[in-house]
Amino acid sequence: MLDLGDLNVFAKVVETESLTNAGRLLGLPKSTVSRRLSRLEEHLGVQLLHRGTRVVTVTGEGRLFFEYCLRVIGVIRDGERALQCDPAHPQGVVRVAIPYVLGQSLIGPLLAEFLEIYPDLRLVSVLSDDPVGRLRDGFDVALTVGPLIDSGLIAVKLGVTGCGAFSAPGYLERKGAPQSHVELPRFDLLAADTLERRQKWTLQKDDHQVTVEFTPKLVSNDLILLRDAALAGSGIANLPAFLCKQALATGGIVEVLPGWRTSDIGFFALFADPKGVPIRVRTLIDFLVERLRPRLSWDIN
């Protein structure tokens, strides 16, 4: 009789194309993975895999059997979800991957509240430069900052934040404050990017739209770093509102050219299968939608 554990090992090896990676994800040594694969091939009487020194490839028979394995594993997972289908009392572990800018400033403070509301749930949260990639490592959901790319994943919009230009009052006292977008390039502008190159901000107010091109004083792909640089008086940064709300409330930062805004930024939860989202994961997504939207707004209260 086939061992369900062997099927799971085989499926994970096919997905990762590696005995080592499959063992790491399953918590098994490579030797155990190899032994279970050999046992499965011996039971079936066919070769399922070609095991190279660098990569594992699937035989024709292996590819056919893999499709059936996915069906079996899917049925078992559906059964597990059925045991956790009470929306009022979700149980189990939710594995969520979070980009650094969200984890440090938005999501982190909410997790304690979430666990207090749902005491039977547990969380595994990882800050990652590649949260979507974590879905391939077995995570349930990945949080991302838009715009979305065509990844084939299902997206739930968590909220939207507006963006504008911000600076410390001390900087504007030293350098003066721009009175129009035309003056912006003569100031020290801080840009979000990974490369040293000319930058472009598109600003909009009511029905008017303008474009500002400039050479940035500071470039960083870390929005929190840019916010802190603006707070320290290094220049003017284009930032999402949620990162500046506290500093706006205390006067540590002010909006430059009030009313002129750059494009909104969307925040999303991504997962692979809309029909297979368990209640425990849906509970977290619904919670984040409810809690994040007011935090993402310009409203300081």
Rank of each mutant, 00 (worst) to 15 (best):
L83H: 12
D86T: 09
L83A: 15
E67V: 09
R63K: 13
C85Y: 08
L83P: 04
E67I: 07
G92T: 08
Q84V: 09
C85S: 12
H89Q: 11
D86H: 07
G92K: 03
V72R: 03
I73V: 15
D86Q: 07
I76E: 15
Q84M: 12
F65C: 03
P90C: 03
H89C: 08
G79R: 04
G62Q: 03
R71P: 04
E61D: 15
A82C: 06
R63W: 11
I73N: 01
G74E: 12
Q91P: 05
L70C: 08
Y68D: 10
E67D: 14
I76A: 13
Q84G: 07
G92H: 03
E80R: 06
L70V: 07
C85T: 10
G79F: 01
A82F: 06
R63H: 12
H89R: 14
I73P: 00
V75Y: 06
E80H: 07
I76S: 11
D86W: 06
R77G: 05
R81Q: 13
Y68T: 13
E61W: 05
L70M: 09
L83N: 10
A82G: 11
E61G: 13
L64C: 08
C85R: 10
E61S: 15
F65P: 01
L64V: 14
G62M: 00
G74M: 11
G79P: 00
C85H: 07
R77D: 10
Q91R: 11
I73W: 06
Y68C: 11
A82E: 09
Q84W: 08
V72H: 02
L70H: 05
A88Y: 01
L83T: 14
L83G: 12
L64E: 09
P90A: 02
R63Q: 15
C69L: 01
V72D: 02
F66M: 10
Y68H: 14
Q91A: 09
Q91T: 13
R81T: 06
E61Y: 11
R63C: 09
V72G: 01
E61N: 15
G62P: 01
F66T: 07
P90N: 04
C85N: 11
A82K: 11
A82N: 08
G74R: 15
Y68W: 14
F66I: 09
A88T: 00
V72Q: 05
R63F: 11
R71L: 15
F65H: 03
A88R: 01
E61K: 13
A88G: 00
G92E: 05
G60W: 01
G74V: 06
F66R: 11
Q91F: 07
I76H: 14
